[in-house]
Amino acid sequence: MSNPDSQTHIEVRNLNFSRSGRPIFRDLSLSVERGKITAIMGPSGTGKTTLLKLIGGQLQPDSGQILLDDLDVHKLNRKWLFHLRARMGMLFQSGALFTDMSVFENVAFPLRVHTDLDDELVRDLVLMKLNAVGLRGAAELMPSELSGGMARRAALARAIALDPDILMYDEPFAGQDPIAMGVLIKLIRQLNQALGHTSIIVSHDINETLSIADYVYLIADGALLTQGTPDELVNQEDPQVRQFLHGEADGPVPFHFPAPDLATQLLGGGQ
């Protein structure tokens, strides 16, 4: 079924998706290379997180395909989809640690569910994963006792518990202080090199993401704006790409939300 020799690990083909009648993606196509860090960037509200949920089979597209090793994610039945997800790890924006379990139990959870390992081995594996993210000492803490950065690292340890083939990061740098951000950048790069999994980072933190990505897709208005290596992107002349990468307030993406003319509105009364 799968073809591990192929360079393309995930392929999105002509994806169309809309929510409450509003189109999120229009005929989007992109591919993610095996073992590389691929970044998907774009302004807020362009549906980057939605794309991860579509890849994970949590949402159904209106049309188009998402292939994982030539396997159509949305054609699988529930049972196979859950099998497939055991090979994927996802770091949610909020961390999404299970609040009724300790950090240790959170990381142990996927191991207990998907393997028959005895408690001793689970303990060793969990401690190794926690050590990898620097939280071995926090194993017995509850999620509510962790800082934002620690929660995200604990969630990362849980995401890598089963050594997944694909690791998806949803806004990993959002709301992190510079130290936590630095730690996360280092961890994502190190884990990718050590474990050799395919990583997808969805983010709008430009500098951090460009510093670790091998390849970048820039999405705007539901379609692909541009793609390339970080260097290629930085040197692009396209005004919309430049506006996004350089954080300019006004440009092709307007500063103002669509509204009637200010003078007309002020003089015309009403709303």
Binding site: G56, Q58, R85, F92, S94, A96, F98, P110
Partner: peptide
């Protein structure tokens, strides 16, 4: 709250219904 904090989505992504 589990839904809002993505815990339900997290269960799904871990492969637990």
């Amino acid at each position: 709250l589990m839904k809002a904090t993505e815990q339900l989505a997290s269960y799904e992504m871990i492969g637990v219904d």
